[in-house]
Design a protein around this nucleic acid. Sequence first.
DNA 1: GTTTCATGTAACTTCTTATGTTACATGATG
DNA 2: CATCATGTAACATAAGAAGTTACATGAAAC
Lengths: 152, 152
Amino acid sequence: MKRDSRLSGVLHVLLHMAQQPGPFTSETLAKAMDTNPVVIRRIMAGLRDLNYVRSEKGHGGGWTLACDLSKVTLRDVYAALGSPSLLAMGNRTEAPGCLVEQAVNAALDQAFDDAEALLLSRLGEVTLAMLGDDLRKRLGSRKLQGMSAHHA
Amino acid sequence: MKRDSRLSGVLHVLLHMAQQPGPFTSETLAKAMDTNPVVIRRIMAGLRDLNYVRSEKGHGGGWTLACDLSKVTLRDVYAALGSPSLLAMGNRTEAPGCLVEQAVNAALDQAFDDAEALLLSRLGEVTLAMLGDDLRKRLGSRKLQGMSAHHA
DNA sequence: GTTTCATGTAACTTCTTATGTTACATGATG
DNA sequence: CATCATGTAACATAAGAAGTTACATGAAAC
């Protein structure tokens, strides 16, 4: 597997859901994402546990948004996924006896920790509502582009 | 595989080499690192190509440091490894047609790029010589600890 | 010059983890 | 009760790092 794309995927789902009233079945969402319904259920499970979304069985069932989009940040969504590791690199050994390794770990950890902290901080600054606003802007400008193309 | 530990590993090797004159065989280094000689050769290949180290065959051969340790940063070493990906997460799709995905990617890329830039910057601030100095401090304080334990 | 030693590299195995898929149980709706 | 949808286990697939084996290349020692 190249890189973990669950955060990217689940945000895609949430943003799609924010564009129109639900509920949405896993199958519908899976088709929009070109993947499998089980994958959808899997990445949504954590968000359901935190009550960011709700799921209903049976006819008319599916997934529904259940949170204030202006209150939930990308960092919250990341946490709902179980906080998978952010960095692709790490130390060979944690808590090594070898002093050489300790010196290496100390230097790397400082850099790694800083980068992780910044990434989490950045994710914490962006709410789902802000993502939705950005999307609406993109939809608007596409519409304008279409009109100007029509006029040209 | 959990996480890429090549940077950690190769730094460990370099720091070991900086502690005493060489040359060191891959087998010696592998034993110190509790790994396989081929792994050593593999992670050292890029550094040899950049002339950070030299390797000699035959009797008395092995690896030798061939650079000014105060001029080479951890970032240089990282680059010598082929600049493997730093982040464990990424976008589901690059250059997507879907506007939703574009909005998600834009938000995530901003956070990801910032974190990567910070990490590279931090790695660029630390030279191998600084790592060596830190190691010597650790060796010194261990000696002191041993002495005070002896006095106690 | 032949033996020994060491690197260089290809090929294969093993391990881990995200992702894709199948199968089936659970529960809600008509 | 039949249908629909989620919940989840189990298994398959894929990618990459790390470990291992095998052998070629070349240098030094004898």
